[in-house]
Simulated scan of single mutants.
Amino acid sequence: MTADQLYHDPELAQFYDAENEWTDGLEYCRRLAAPCASVLDLGCGTGLFAATLAQEGHCTVAGADPAAAMLDIARVRSGGHLVRWLPADARTLRLDERFDLIVLTGHAFQVFLTRDDQAAVLRTIASHLRPGERFIFDSRNPLVEEWKEWTPEQSQRTLAHPQLGAIEAWNDVSRDAASGVVSYDSYYRVKASGRLYSARSPIAFPAQGQLAELLQEAGLRATSWLGGWDERPCTADAPEIIVMGTLRT
């Protein structure tokens, strides 16, 4: 799996927070973390969730991500000094400790394109989860075919960057029918200067049945399948596949 420049290139990583503010998913995970003494945020990105949680002071927080450019942003954000940041890949991370909650949000699971990679991530979760405690991750429902909306015409938006000002942003997309992998292009044009930044990002759309098989093989058990962060059921027309579970005994 090659490094995605959208996250690894500092010039592109700087747009992440402008695109991704506090979400319903992060708020949901924040409530899950309330009774926990320790939390591992896999694929923590720029660290908004991990730093926010650490500032609340009721648990220790570790955030893992392979992208140095994202962790550089995470370290200097408010609360960042309270988090243990780990420059690590979710497929291979191995710590000699276990956590009360493991989260993998923001559709980070979808950057793992093959079954082997997805299985490796779930084994990492199983290796670090305290018995009786919970994990949660999300993935877009392939049956909804959300990628069809990621066209230049439908994805036009304006972002506010703290230094660069207004940013015109849009996407384009293609899909490999054989593998089901979707590749989307992200474009950011600075209105003041006209400078254009771009990157291509491949992501997978595993089906619920595939995820269920992978969980079992990793020694994990799903306790609930949600179709959205509003706790709607995971039906064919639900936008999300959100898996919450524990170790299989």
Rank of each mutant, 00 (worst) to 15 (best):
D4P: 00
Q5N: 09
L12N: 06
Y16F: 13
A18R: 00
N20P: 00
D24Q: 13
E27C: 00
R31K: 12
A33S: 10
A37R: 15
D41F: 04
G43N: 07
C44P: 01
T60L: 05
A64S: 10
D65A: 04
P66D: 04
L71S: 03
D72M: 00
A74N: 05
G80S: 09
L82A: 13
R84V: 06
W85V: 09
A88C: 13
D89R: 05
R91H: 08
T92W: 02
D100F: 02
V103E: 02
V103Y: 00
F112L: 09
L113F: 09
R115T: 15
A119F: 00
A119L: 14
T124N: 04
I125T: 08
L129P: 03
D138G: 07
W147P: 07
W147I: 07
W150M: 14
Q154W: 00
S155F: 11
R157Y: 00
R157G: 00
L159E: 09
P162I: 02
L164H: 12
A166C: 02
I167M: 06
I167F: 06
W170S: 12
N171A: 05
N171D: 14
D176W: 06
G180E: 08
V182F: 07
Y184G: 01
Y187S: 08
R189I: 03
R189C: 12
R189E: 14
V190R: 07
K191I: 14
A192Y: 05
S193D: 12
G194N: 11
G194Y: 11
A199N: 05
L211K: 10
E213R: 13
E213V: 10
L214V: 09
L215D: 12
G219K: 09
L220R: 06
R221T: 11
R221C: 09
S224E: 15
G227W: 04
W229K: 03
P233Q: 09
P233A: 12
C234A: 15
D237W: 08
P239W: 11
E240Q: 14
I242L: 12
I242N: 05
G245S: 08
R248K: 13
T249M: 02
